[in-house]
Amino acid sequence: MFNNKFDMETTEIKIAFYSAYFYRIFDLLLISENLWNGIGERPYSFKFIPIAINDQIIQDQIINSRLNNGTMTVTESIGEYDNIDQLMAENKLENIIIENKKLNKELGDNENEQSSTNSINETRTSTSKETTSNN
């Protein structure tokens, strides 16, 4: 992955330069396979994902898989996404829980409130047990 600003700019320039060649190659391929007659609008298009977004997508997939595997807590994931320390992440999680409770009360959904609170408390409890056992 390119993480340098100049590498990203170079990549964008290369994409812009080679796009015409990509279109021409696919035009010829579709014409030779009788899938398009070469007249009118192309039946395809290219959309390149910017390299900066690619890094964010990969980070998101890693964090989601770690959450699903149970190798990361909710507060750790909040800290990774928002680039904050553990205490701030815990405070943010508490605020999220409070907001969810308010929304659930407004909507009259008490069952979801209990299940979401229990799952978050279980996550916190398992984290504290792991920390205690490691010490």
Rank of each mutant, 00 (worst) to 15 (best):
K102Q: 06
A89W: 00
Q114F: 07
E122K: 08
N121P: 01
L93W: 00
T123F: 05
S119M: 04
E99L: 12
G108F: 00
L107P: 05
R124W: 01
K102T: 08
E113M: 09
I120P: 00
S116K: 08
E94C: 10
L103V: 05
I97T: 03
E113R: 01
E94G: 09
L103F: 06
N91D: 15
T127L: 14
K129W: 05
T127W: 12
T117F: 06
S126E: 13
E94I: 14
S116D: 09
E111L: 09
K101L: 13
E130M: 09
K92F: 02
Q114T: 13
E90L: 13
N121S: 10
I96H: 01
R124Q: 06
K101W: 08
I120Q: 01
A89K: 00
D109I: 10
E99V: 03
T117N: 05
A89R: 00
S119C: 01
I98E: 04
Q114N: 11
K101D: 11
T117G: 00
I120M: 03
N121L: 10
L93I: 01
L107S: 14
N110P: 07
N100G: 10
S119Y: 02
N104E: 08
T131G: 06
N118R: 13
E99C: 07
E111N: 06
D109H: 06
T131Q: 14
N100F: 12
A89P: 00
D109W: 03
N104H: 07
L93S: 04
E111C: 02
E106Q: 08
E130G: 07
K105G: 10
N112G: 04
K101E: 13
S128D: 11
L103Y: 07
N112S: 14
I96L: 08
I98T: 00
E113S: 09
I120F: 01
I96Y: 03
I97M: 11
K101G: 04
N104Y: 11
T123Y: 05
L103K: 10
E106M: 10
K105Q: 14
T125G: 02
N104F: 12
R124C: 04
S116M: 11
N110E: 15
S119E: 07
N110W: 06
K105A: 15
S116N: 08
E90S: 13
K102P: 00
S128F: 10
E106S: 08
E111F: 06
E90D: 15
S126A: 14
T125A: 07
S126R: 15
K102V: 11
T131C: 10
N104Q: 07
S116P: 02
I98Y: 03
E90F: 11
R124V: 04
A89D: 00
N110S: 14
